[in-house]
Design a protein around this nucleic acid. Structure first.
Length: 747
DNA sequence: AGCACGCCGACT
DNA sequence: GTCGGCGTGCTC
């Protein structure tokens, strides 16, 4: 690997496009033995000292300005060539720097080294001295304004402060030099969590025919050590977890390791218990609630080969397994696999790439697979489809009823609860059984709906629900189509066309009126804000101290309450009319999942779905537990409008404190894109600019462009080209651009 | 990201 | 002229 006289190739730890390449450094004789691929080094870089990653050895085009490596930061490599390849792929596909991708892969281990430090800027003077300080800066208006800003907002970072005032960061530096501002490091606190020991029972359960056949197929490719992706489409209760665990046993038998990704570990304590019982001390659990030290210990155990089964959330996909042989992604359709800030990667995509590099098997499991995966698993596609159609306990799926809220409205009931739901709840309460009332999170963006006929206005070009704005207009946030909000429903002429929606508190209030005898508990982000109250509520409900639990998404996922025989969905329309092309898919997945919550114990269950759109296929298909019907209805819609999985989307989000500047910046970006595309003959369209659904956050305005392309490589190439051409403009007024490839939501 | 350079306007 | 403020180019 190391060539005689070769220079070390180093990627410096800067997250900028312009420095995203290898720089060559000479290796001094004293460090000859220590410098190897995978370690971090300290290098001189443009009059500074920076950390860098050694990625190889080679020769630069010219050797005139070569400098020497100043020191090494690691005694042994912190990344393997496989993980470096993964980082390069991420940089290419998610349009970030290689250093940033590497940092993301390594951070769980490296964060512990030095404690995480946030540098905050504070004023160095008292309020009474501000006047005289400002006088001394009379010839430096930007500094004066910045100092004032810092007095009002102490504790921002250097960059945040500069951006908040709209000046370059060098103004902050000048004030620090003059002693008017100080920069102080703040250590972030850490907390500790203990894990209880459990006894090990390594024997698997006996599989039914369907499970056995499925396992045999997967086992063949695991034993051959071949790259292969399986989509395991199994209905709720069909025993997917047992298939995972036996596939893992087979993987361990070949001397390789396995990763299991779950959407949210806090919601699947049963899964963690099951894995610990089966695999004992070989299990490493990785999730966000771990302290730095604990996470470091787990990563260490994984790297040393001590823990060969990794169970974790999104970022566990970067676990440093020596020879991964199997990647399981449970509930593969979940949007939480997509990181939605900073480096916006999708853990499912990363897993498939990593498996390809390592020659491993990927097992995607879901009762309601994403359309992307279903399309790839259809005939002739790259994935192999495996189906589990029988429930292991032989129990029937819960009966689901759809209640037409338009009829309730016509019948004079404008409340939250339909008569059907009230009657059903009372029946369950009389029998001493439990009820879950599920309320979809109220949309961040409001739409208007006609409560007489269920009509929601959509964009004629994009088929996306139009968002209601306070100025009385409706707007499409993909293409910026705008109309006046009508006073009367254009379909039925009713006056009841307005935005509506109830929060969990409102539902709780009304429920107390209807069911005064029942013991009620509410679970939402407000009531679970305190640490530990989440599991407290869940335990109280499981112990039957509560009759009715009211909650949002939180109660829909993975929880198993044997006493629940009725699940009520208060309002299916909120998800159905999210301003997103995936709204119907989300609704179907959510309703299927929620309905599956009822009747998990001995008693048969029932689900009641309230909606103003009882005929929509995502609702009727979910009520009938019919995945194929949903697929066959939704696919043609996606195809005709050119949405994924038949295309690739990107969202460019522009933010700036001045609304005119963002609008202008986004408009310029669109022009740049159109220029690049002109005459290229590429099938790429650019929608917008339009205000983002959350049009202003923390005093920054947000506008966006949506780009649709037939192929992903074309999409990223055109974006990369436009970004580098935009970077040439003046930086002072340029809005900040954030690129999201195949976004899940569009907030 | 952040250092050094160079342009430009203000004042001895 | 010359000094200080502030944007910008370049980094093995």
């Amino acid at each position: 690997m190391k060539k005689i006289g070769a220079f070390a190739e180093v990627i410096v730890a800067l997250n900028t496009r312009s420095t995203d390449r290898v720089f060559h450094y000479a290796v001094p004789a004293a460090l000859q033995d220590k410098v190897e691929v995978g370690i971090r080094v300290l290098v001189p870089f443009n009059n500074r000292s920076l950390a860098g990653y050694v990625t190889g050895f080679g020769f630069p085009e010219n050797t005139v300005n070569i400098k020497e490596i100043a020191g090494v930061l690691d005694a042994e490599p912190v990344f393997t060539p496989e993980l470096l390849e993964l980082a390069r792929w991420m940089a290419e596909n998610y349009l970030c720097s290689t250093a940033e991708a590497l940092q993301r892969i390594l951070s769980p281990r490296l964060l512990v080294k030095g404690q995480r430090v946030v540098k905050q800027v504070h004023p160095a003077i008292q309020a009474k001295d501000l006047e005289s300080a400002l006088n001394s800066l009379s010839r430096a208006p930007k500094q004066a304004a910045l100092l004032k800003k810092a007095m009002i907002n102490p504790g921002l970072t250097r960059k945040e402060l500069a951006v908040a005032e709209g000046v370059s960061a060098s103004v902050v530096d000048t004030l620090v030099e003059k002693g008017l501002l100080v920069i102080s490091p703040e250590n972030s606190p850490r907390r500790l969590v203990r894990v209880a020991q459990t006894s090990v029972d390594s024997n698997g359960l006996v599989l039914n025919d369907g499970q056995k056949e499925t396992l045999d197929q997967v086992a063949r490719d695991i034993r051959q050590g071949m790259f292969k992706v399986f989509l395991l489409h199994g209905i709720t209760g069909s025993g997917k977890t047992e298939v995972y665990m036996q596939a893992i046993s087979i993987t361990l038998g070949t001397g390789r390791q396995a990763v299991v990704l779950v959407p949210e570990i806090s919601l699947t304590p049963q899964m963690v218990d099951m894995f610990r019982r089966r695999f004992g001390g070989q299990v490493a659990v990785l999730h966000s609630a771990l302290s730095g030290g604990e996470r470091y210990d787990e990563w260490r155990r994984i790297k040393e080969g001590e823990a060969s089964v990794v169970l974790g959330t999104r970022s566990a996909i970067f676990a440093p397994l020596p020879r991964p042989g199997l990647f399981v992604i449970d509930e593969e359709h979940e949007s939480s696999y997509k990181q939605d800030d900073h480096l916006r990667y999708h853990a499912r995509e990363v897993a498939i790439k990593r498996a390809q590099i390592a020659g491993a098997v990927v097992l995607l499991g879901s009762a309601t697979p994403s359309l992307e995966s279903q399309l790839k698993a259809s005939a002739g596609g790259p994935y192999q489809l495996l189906k589990l159609t029988d429930r292991i306990d032989g129990r029937p799926l819960p009966l689901a009823r759809v209640v037409d809220m338009r009829l309730e409205m016509k019948g004079g009931n404008s409340g939250i609860f339909s008569r059907t739901l009230v009657a059903a709840v009372n029946k369950r309460l009389d029998k001493g059984e439990q009820v879950l009332l599920f309320l979809n999170r109220r949309g961040y963006a409001t739409f208007i709906i006609c409560r007489e006929c269920g009509l929601v206005l959509k964009c004629p070009r994009c088929d996306i629900s139009l968002i209601y704005h306070r100025d009385g207009r409706l707007r499409c946030h993909y293409c910026n189509y705008t109309v006046r909000a009508p006073d009367l429903c254009p379909s039925c002429g009713s006056q009841s066309i307005k935005h509506f929606g109830a929060g969990t508190q409102k539902v709780e209030e009304e429920a107390r009126q209807f069911f005064p005898e029942a013991r009620l508990l509410r679970m939402d982000s407000d009531s679970t804000a305190r640490k530990g109250s989440h599991s407290k509520i869940i335990n109280a409900f499981r112990d039957r101290q509560v009759d009715i639990l009211i909650g949002t998404q939180m109660i829909a996922k993975g929880l198993d309450f044997p006493g629940v025989t009725l699940v009520g969905v208060i309002n299916a329309d909120t998800t159905l009319h999210m301003p997103d092309f995936r709204a119907a898919e989300r609704t179907f997945q959510l309703l299927t999942q929620v309905a599956g919550r009822a009747g998990r114990g001995e008693l048969p269950g029932e689900a009641i779905i309230q909606t103003y759109n009882p005929d929509h296929y995502s609702i009727t298909a979910a009520a009938a537990h019919d995945c194929d019907r949903f697929y066959l209805s939704e696919m043609p819609v996606r195809r005709s409008l050119g949405y994924p999985p038949f295309s690739h989307l990107a969202r460019l989000l522009f933010t700036h404190e001045d609304e005119e500047e963002v609008k202008k910046g986004a408009g310029q970006a669109k022009e740049t894109l159109k220029n690049i595309l002109a005459g290229s003959g590429k099938n790429i369209s650019v929608l917008g600019p339009a205000p983002a659904p959350l049009s202003k956050i923390k005093d920054r305005y947000r506008w966006q462009l949506v780009i649709k392309a037939s192929r992903r490589d074309l999409l990223r190439d055109v974006i990369r080209e436009s970004l580098s051409s935009l970077e040439k403009g003046p930086s002072s007024i340029r809005p900040v651009v954030n690129v999201d490839i195949n976004p899940q939501g569009m907030m």
